[in-house]
Amino acid sequence: MNEPVVTVQNLTRRFGEFTAVDHINFEVKQGEIVGYLGPNGSGKTTTIRMLLGLLLPTEGRATVLGYDIAQQSEAIRLRVGYMSQKFAIYDDLTTLENLTFYAGVYGITDKERIKHTLNLVGLNQHYHTLTKSFSTGWRQRLSLAIALVHEPKLLFLDEPTSGVDPTARRAFWDLIYSLAENGVTILVTTHYMDEAEYCGRVGVMRDGKLLALDTPTNLKQKVIAGDVWEVYVSPLEQGLEALNQMDGVERVGLAGDHLRVISLGIDEKAIENLLNAKNIQARRIERGEATLEDVFLSLAR
């Protein structure tokens, strides 16, 4: 499992004066699940479009499954799958008819193979169901089947589980994990931390640059060097203001009924003392866990 499936060297794309992707470098190995996070306009989509061979780089090079993105984009597109919720699923067709239609685009007419793909995503009971009756979770499974029917070695997923609850999301990711165990490499772009937490490595982009690419655990440890506290104070606004001016406080945010504080080199006693000195009552201070959202906000600001 050590073959690099994607290699990217100094990949750059300019549109006129604007540099959408700015000298990025990374590798993805076979069977990895890599997530991409970034604000709108950070260069995620431009990167993916180049990897799919839909857009030529201005500078740098990249290979996907051993093929050069600039010279061999046809070969790449035959071997990769792409899933987006913006895909049309035909509501007045059944599951099997929808997939048969999309398989035809790849020249696949083997009924058994089409059914096998539906079984793989857990739709074996629903061959003849009209898709208009499907929940979002089931539609996502059908979209995955559409992306998988030509047995790609590399799969691009664009916010694959937006709009579903954790139970449906986990069921979907169980499918993704079993694909990865069978050697399929997976790249995911998302805005949602709930999804990013499922990835083996996560890259963060801003202004066309890849700021970090590492496991969620390493990102949290490296980027959030300090401690995270959940501080329950009233009044909330005064607490926010006081902590914002405190030495050793890296970031304070409103978190509903409390404040979320990231500090460096100060303990909970110091936080409590400061609040008391300003006549702000600290009801409770608990140690929190760094999240990928903390990482993202630290890197992307």
Binding site: L37, G38, P39, N40, S162, G163, H191, M193, G253, L254, E293, F296, L297, A300, R301
Partner: peptide, 12 residues
């Protein structure tokens, strides 16, 4: 929905 995490944080 469809809003990036930085914007979402500001909104909240």
């Amino acid at each position: 929905t469809g809003v990036d995490p930085v914007t979402r944080q500001d909104f909240w």
